[in-house]
Write a protein that binds this DNA or RNA. Structure first.
Length: 497
RNA sequence: GGUAUCGUGGCCGAGUGGCUAGGCUCAGCUCUGCAAAAGCUGCUACAGCGGUUCGAAUCCGCUCGAUACCUCCA
């Protein structure tokens, strides 16, 4: 039995996973900024780390999964002018930050549910932890690694970098950062270009503001994760995850802040998922190629040929290793839809198949192959969460399962124990760990009864060789998206799109 | 410009130096009243050029190409 190894972005290699406290795992994942609707790009980290969470639990760990909501910062909504530009308008016409936060948090939660992502143990908000952030900033100032200018506080990267390996996580060279020629807002306040804000003074028109030792303002971009992760997981915890694009500056800054405030590096294992691309380009606001989740599920987007079921998206994401880029296309998603459907049907067939009575397999080679594919699932998950290979293993089982049903594989070819092992493997990996669900659920009992009636009528028509009638029934149902399948022995089954 | 990552068959994608990844598509066959479904078979690739090695998609070098980060970003 192999042990879990995962790729640590910090060391840039696969490492054996050993939790700080055996049997317990602290997992922190950077959550969304709820100033806009979640999109396809957001789906990847949350599905990726949902599987990480599920698998760690499967291995017997008690996982505390913390995923934050970033609800502080500069808030604007598309199609609506920012508050500072319409200061004179009536209160109800003004942009109320909580309104946006509420709306998009709800939409995000809805999306996560659609994807069948388990809820995190704690979902802290940035605005709910202003005091913790202020405390942490004060601590960093007291230790001499931050300075205040005009009500804003900046982290002294140069000083930090002279003593600690700043840039190691993201492969950055500090001298290059210091030479950046880019002009940025508020740059003149910083002692050095590489410095980053811990606290920002709020200009009069800024609507989100809190009192602090440095005047009214709001927290910087990186401090919330450090403050909240240490509060709920400890100053040093096991896994921190997020998208690759957060490696720099976000996570690099987190390491620097926490190292000074707590005297130790905050995280043992850094995990970063790769990006989803569209036509080879990263999906992002700046590229104008964002597909929102609502659009994805409804098909209401110029780039979409059809709606895509959340489980198809989940399957499509899990078919690729999380550290590879994943290119979006209608073709790829449609292939995923067919593949998931076929795999799930094989699973359902398996569940309905009678367990063979024989303890010995009639086809020893086949039996051994099946067992190997089942056992490989654990090894593949342990190899840095290789969900693509897990799915490939499950697909390998499908021909045998369908073959037993269709009669191409002899009953008794595999042993009863192997049959049970297949059932267990599907249940454990497909449902529990990969978190997949069938595309159509809660089949309506009345619809089923009606269909059984229709099937009965078609059987009768076929029995009297009235093929015109039997074909008509089949064609009319097909037009409604219901496929009838004639099986051996005159039985019929159906599937609904 | 700096720093990384990547380049796999019609498409998507996994790959630990030697053994069929897998999915989708396509073609043929079996089954079937005809279909569909299912099963079987076939399509056998690793950007290019060198090098290391008994042996490289996998290691090294160069070239070309792509992307990402360096700015809010999953």
């Amino acid at each position: 039995m192999s042990e879990l190894h995962l790729y640590n972005s910090y060391s840039r290699q696969k490492e054996k996973f050993e939790p700080i406290t055996p049997g317990h795992v602290g997992l922190y994942v950077c959550g969304p900024t709820v100033s806009g609707e979640s999109h396809l790009g957001h789906a990847r980290p949350y599905i990726t780390f949902d599987v990480v969470n599920r698998y760690l639990q499967h291995l017997g760990n008690k996982v505390r999964y913390v995923r934050n909501i970033t609800d502080a910062g500069h808030f604007e909504e598309e199609g609506r002018e920012a508050e500072d530009k319409v200061a004179k308008k009536a209160l109800l016409e003004m942009l109320e930050p909580m309104e946006l936060v509420h709306k998009y948090t709800s939409l995000y939660h809805w999306g996560m549910q659609e994807f069948n992502c388990l809820e995190p143990s704690i979902e802290p908000t940035a605005t709910g932890h202003i005091i913790e952030q202020i405390n942490m900033i004060e601590d960093i100032i007291a230790k001499g690694y931050a300075y205040e200018v005009n009500g804003s506080v900046y982290f002294d990267v140069k000083k930090y970098a002279s003593e600690y390996p700043y840039g190691k996580l993201s492969g950055r060279v500090i001298d290059d950062l210091l030479e950046t020629t880019r002009e940025l807002e508020g740059q003149e306040e910083k002692r050095d270009r590489a410095d980053f804000a811990l606290w920002k003074n709020a200009p009069p028109e800024h609507i989100m503001r809190w009192k602090s030792p440095w005047g009214e303002g709001f927290p910087g971009w990186h401090i919330e994760c450090s403050a909240m992760s240490s509060k709920y997981l400890g100053q040093r915890f096991d896994i921190h995850g997020g998208g690759m694009d957060l490696q720099f500056p976000h996570h690099e800054s987190e390491i620097a802040q926490s190292t000074i405030a707590h005297g130790c590096a905050p995280v043992n294992y850094w995990m970063h998922n790769n990006m989803i691309t569209i036509e080879g380009r990263k999906m992002g606001k700046s590229y104008n190629n964002v597909i929102k989740l609502t659009e994805l599920f409804s098909g209401n987007h110029p780039m979409l040929e059809q709606p895509y079921h959340p489980m198809v998206i989940r399957f499509y994401i899990l078919q690729t290793h999380y550290r590879s880029t994943l290119d979006f296309s209608n073709e790829a998603l449609q292939a995923s839809e067919k593949a998931l459907r076929r795999l799930w049907e094989a699973y359902e067939v398996l569940q309905k198949l009678p367990v063979p009575a024989n303890a010995e397999a009639a086809d020893a080679a086949l039996d051994a192959n099946i067992r190997t594919f089942c056992h490989n699932c654990a090894d593949d998950m342990n190899d840095d969460f290789n969900t693509a290979r897990v799915l490939a293993n499950l697909f390998e089982l499908a021909p045998t399962i369908n073959g037993i049903k269709g009669g191409q594989v002899k009953a008794g070819a595999i042993s009863s124990a192997t049959h049970e092992l297949m059932l267990h493997t599907f249940k454990t990996y497909l449902e529990d760990i990969l978190g997949l669900k069938p595309l159509q659920q809660n089949r309506d009992a009345k619809l089923d009864a009606v269909l059984q009636l229709v099937i009965e009528m078609r059987k009768e028509a076929r029995n009297r060789k009235d093929y015109a009638a039997s074909d008509k029934i089949r064609d009319m149902l097909a037009a409604e998206g219901i496929q009838l399948k004639d099986e051996k022995g005159g039985e019929m089954s159906y599937s609904i799109d």
